[in-house]
Each structure stands twice: as structure tokens, then as C-alpha cells.
């Protein structure tokens, strides 16, 4: 039986998805966790892709940073857990 902790990926796994949405490279963007204030490059965050949507968690406090659902040609993006995103100008 596969343990949930072994299903954990990281931000590298959603680099393609994030670039579809934001149109720039996002794994080097820095996100501030709304819960604990930790600042992490998105390549470092915890990612779970086995649910119907993608769930992104803070590597420091494990709170949900983002949820992304794709379907029917649309995206639903919940960024409640990210206080700030800092990224390089395209």
C-alpha cells in the first residue's frame, strides 16, 4: 500500500501547469505562506497531484498554499493560502 507521504511531489512537478497559467517560469517565483509567513521558491513546495485537483502545501507548516483544478477547457485557481507571489518580469 502506497503511503500518502510517498505520493508527495514538489513544485518541479507542476512547473508545466504553472507555466500554462502564468505564462512564465514559476518554480523560481517566491511565494509567501499566508499561514506561517515562510517564503519559499515554488520549486520547493509540497505538491500532491493524485486528487482530482492539484494541492500545493507549504513545506514549513504544511498549510494549503494553492489548489488548481483543470477541466472542460478552464482552470479554477485558489490562491487563498499565498499572501504574496514574487516573480521575475517576463
Amino acid at each position: 500500500m502506497t503511503q500518502v507521504r510517498d505520493m508527495k511531489l514538489d513544485g518541479n512537478a507542476i512547473a508545466g501547469l504553472l507555466r500554462e497559467i502564468f505564462a512564465v517560469e514559476m518554480t523560481t517565483a517566491r511565494g509567501t505562506c499566508a499561514a506561517c509567513g515562510a517564503v519559499n521558491e515554488l520549486g520547493r513546495v509540497e505538491v500532491y497531484i493524485h486528487a482530482p485537483g492539484t494541492v500545493v502545501r507549504c513545506p514549513d507548516c504544511e498549510q494549503v498554499l494553492m489548489r488548481v483544478v483543470r477541466g472542460g477547457g478552464r482552470y479554477w485557481i485558489d490562491l487563498t493560502g499565498v499572501r504574496c507571489l514574487e516573480l521575475a518580469e517576463g
Binding site: 510517498d6 511531489l9 514538489d10 518541479n12 520547493r44
Partner: peptide
Amino acid sequence: RSIKTERFGAT
């Protein structure tokens, strides 16, 4: 923060 990781996952 100087340790960069890339995980393959279990499936």
C-alpha cells in the same frame, strides 16, 4: 534552502 530536491513520487 541550498538543497534542491526533485521527487519522482510513488506512482
